Every structure is written in structure tokens, then in C-alpha cells.
Amino acid sequence: MKVHVGPVALPELEAAVVAGGAELSSAADASALVWYGGPPEQFAELDHPGLEWVQLPSAGIEPWAASGALRDGVTFTSAAGTYAQTVAEHALGLMLVGARQVHLMARASRWAKPDGMRGVHGSTVGILGAGGIGRALIALLRPFGVRVLAVNRSGKPVDGAVATWRADDVEGVRELLAESDFVVVAAPATAETAQLVDADALARMKPGAWLVNVARGSLVDTGALLAALDEGRLGGAALDVTDPEPLPDGHPLFQHPRAIVSPHAANPESLLVPALARRVEENVRRRLAGEPLLGVVDRAAGY
């Protein structure tokens, strides 16, 4: 099998292709493409009739779906699950910072202890979208003795959660929101999950609860969230992703006493590239062995 890495020929990914057992080649001669370093709109420059498989570098495929690049006749695989551990660590960090009010102490210019400090230990954590990231977060939370509530697409029980509901189970989602001290958003961005956390969902959250979003900004109604934070009913919101993104300079969320914003940094390139290389090597090996690929994109589902 001949594989091309591009538009940017990252050496780590080329090494992964070779380690998986394939041969590096030009785009024109390749039956497989490991995409890195360019927007989906550039895909047409490397696409050709002999292309059979494309490995994408991200877990979310929204830009690819929107661009129309996911054409028939080609198997596309995402990096779904590849970065779960890294993003889960960031989610836990955001939870701890919010619970202990570290953001307020970091911004302070005088010696003063903030009000509202609490702990994560013994709390109830609700996970909206308990896939790879959610499961990794549950494992990290075990030493904290938390009670986990989960929502996923299938409704199949999630290991470590005391209850799991289907995403379309309205009453189940409402129960999760009402009981959780921390609500973690980790679902894929699709038409069905757009503004999943809206004004109604925020109003149903437990007083003093924290919202943590490590998925996509489109899953949370930013205007409704800002209004809820201003009202003071929520403990706060910790956001690694926002809508719009990037968040405009001077946006109220940046300095809001109940908000923590990180610039989509849960999966920095220093951690992304090694993890992606491992996925590339594994999927190349699987392709050559005739085994199912990891992260096959379901265009109808949107991820």
C-alpha cells in the first residue's frame, strides 16, 4: 500500500506510515492519504480516482462535512478516541481550578481568600457525551470517589457510571442536569447537539454547579450561559471551546469571576502529534491486514 502524508509532510507521521508497514509515495500514486496541515478545501488538490482511504487528524469532522470533501468512494477515518486521555486530563484540571477558585486567586492583586471554594471529592459528575473522553475522565475521577451520571447516543451502560441515559431521553438528561455538581460536555458536534446546553438546560442545572465544555463551542449557547453566570445561580463555567471561536478580545467571559477560558488548548500539538502518529501506525497496520479501521466516519451521524 502506498501512502502520502500531506499537505504538510510531517516526519513523525511519515515514520508512522512506514512503521505500520506501508510505503510512502507522492499523492498521485497513493491509495491512502494521511491528512495533516491544511483546510478541507485543499483536499481537491490531493484527491484522485485511485484514492481509497483518508486518515483525518482531528476527532471532530465538522469542517470536512461542511466543505463537502467527504466524497463517496473513499473511506474517511477520524482521530476519534485518539486524544481522549489528554482532553480528559484538561477537563479534570478545569474542574479542580473551578472548584478551588484558583482562577480568582490567580487574577488577584491582593492577599484575599475567595468565597465559594469547594471540593471535587464526593461530588456528582454528569457527562453529556460519555464516549472516549467521557470514559477516560471517569477513570481519572475514580480516586475522587465521585458519583457519575452519563448520557450517550446508545443508552448502553457506561462503566463507572451509576446511571446512563440515551441522548434523546429528555427526562434522563434533565435528571442529570438537576443532580450534577459538575456537568461535563464531551459530545460530538452535530446538528442534533447544536446548543445542547441552552437557557432551559442551564436553568435546570443544580444551583452552584459548574459547567465544563471540552467538546465544541457550538454545544453551548454562549449568550444564555453568560446570562446565567451574571445571574449568579451557577457556580461557574470552565470552557476550553467557545462559540464564537476564537473568543473576541475583551469578551465578558475572559474576566468574568465565574468563568474560566482556555484557548482550545486541551490537546496541544506537543501531545497531539505523538498520539496521532500512534493512530496512523495502527490504522495502516489494520488496513494492510484487512482488519476494521479505527474511527471510521459515519457521514449520516456527522462523526
Rank of each mutant, 00 (worst) to 15 (best):
A228M: 02
G50P: 10
R166Q: 15
L234H: 01
A65W: 00
E14H: 01
R142W: 02
A163R: 14
E52L: 15
F182E: 05
T193S: 13
R135N: 12
D249G: 03
D29V: 01
A65C: 05
A112W: 03
G73R: 07
H121K: 12
A224F: 10
N152W: 03
A215F: 02
T242L: 13
V54R: 03
P143A: 10
A59L: 02
P252N: 08
G132Q: 09
A167C: 02
V34G: 04
V183A: 08
W35K: 07
G132T: 09
R204E: 13
D198Q: 12
A80N: 09
L294F: 01
N267S: 14
G38L: 03
V3E: 06
R287E: 04
G50N: 12
S26N: 02
L96C: 08
L202D: 10
R233T: 15
G145D: 05
H256R: 04
G122D: 00
D169C: 05
A194V: 13
R147F: 08
Q55F: 03
A15N: 06
A99G: 14
L56G: 09
W165S: 04
L272Y: 06
A238Q: 02
L293W: 04
R216C: 11
V151H: 02
R285T: 15
L149K: 10
F43N: 05
V18A: 12
M117Y: 00
A178G: 14
P143V: 11
A191I: 11
L51M: 14
V220A: 04
